[in-house]
Nucleic acid binder design. Structure first.
Lengths: 189, 189
DNA sequence: CTACCATTCAAACGATCGTTTGATTACCGG
DNA sequence: CCGGTAATCAAACGATCGTTTGAATGGTAG
């Protein structure tokens, strides 16, 4: 239960269970398989992210003077926050990125099932703020935003990243740049 | 030599050698280790990508009437082209994305060494077209472009992707959307 | 206290991995 | 034609993986 926090797809169960100081067989006893364990951890993360995003979206929608930047913030900030969470946030992104990389159909469907509705709600909100955009055009652009965000969550990048800034300020800096860039991209003619 | 084309990090040497119809031991005989094989394949791909990108960049720079969109095209199109190459292009992206995901320091340094100079040349060209941008600001934005591009290369995305369009037209469509979006993002105030 | 059920544990299982070995084959200059 | 070097091959090695097993342990209802 607790140790699931340490869960990470690429690591072996022996490493995970050793780090969590539980017996190796406990995983298969409680979860049935390693895959089920991963899915469980993954689902919790995704649920949490969905919750935060929808709450932020509701906040934005409640504001009559909302701007595109606010909406982007509701989409971007919860994701960056979770990806930099100390307790397994990085692992979450790692599993995600690996799933992307491997073209894992199973996880792809899983994401579509457990994340699609959030994406659709955001798409609706975006469409209301960008009424001149065709629906398909918006989807293309949101996909680009999602790509840039995912990349940022993985915290790769050959150029940026300073050591003298706190993690939190780095995150906020990232969010601001992403939001400004994406707002311009979404507003493009 | 030939079979290296099929190389893919996540796959086992037994799968790879079986698919290439060569003996299992041939890999260690010719390359020393699986890791060396991967690095070799990876380096070739990256060299090819660098070549194409620099050639496209030279073409753009030779044009006095060049626009930001042309420059972005020189950066984006060779990458998309290679990622959709039938012979191992997907594998290349897979290794790349996995390296991102795992925060592989080794491959990270490898990329920085063998790819940094291309990125720097492009950054210079971008800077000349966007003279009002601070250098650091440009780097932030280029990093976002790289992220969106990487994501597009992995061809993930929950929304887009139709089946009735050819791979080539899909690629060009992707490129155009990426370029338009990124141009607006880069030009943002 | 006892009987029962859930949990924990050390140990082993079978499969697969990357690598090594030693024999066999292919090639080729002298 | 022959000798030696390079390449190929089947087989095995040791390590590690996820999973299973069966005994030891814990707590709890009757």
């Amino acid at each position: 239960m607790l140790f699931a926090r340490h869960g990470f797809a690429g690591a072996s169960l022996r490493q995970v269970t050793a780090a969590a100081k539980v017996n190796l067989a406990a995983v298969n006893y409680h979860f049935g398989s390693k895959e089920s364990l991963i899915e469980e951890v993954f689902r919790r993360r995704l649920d949490e992210l969905n919750r935060h995003r929808l709450a932020a979206l509701a906040d934005v929608e409640a504001n009559p003077a909302r701007e595109l930047e606010d909406l982007l913030g509701a989409f971007v900030r919860p994701a960056l926050e979770q990806s930099m969470d100390s307790a397994g946030g990085a692992a979450f992104v790692r599993v995600l990125a690996r799933a992307y990389a491997e073209h894992d159909e199973r996880l792809r469907r899983f994401l579509s099932d457990n994340y699609g509705h959030v994406l659709r709600e955001f798409a609706g909100a975006f469409l209301r703020l960008l009424p001149h955009l065709e629906k398909e055009e918006l989807y293309w652009r949101l996909d680009i935003v999602a790509g840039a965000l995912t990349y940022a969550m993985a915290d790769f990048g050959l150029i940026k990243r300073k050591n003298d800034v706190s993690e939190q300020s780095h995150r906020e800096h990232t969010a601001q740049h992403l939001i400004r860039f994406a707002a311009a991209g979404l507003r493009a003619a």
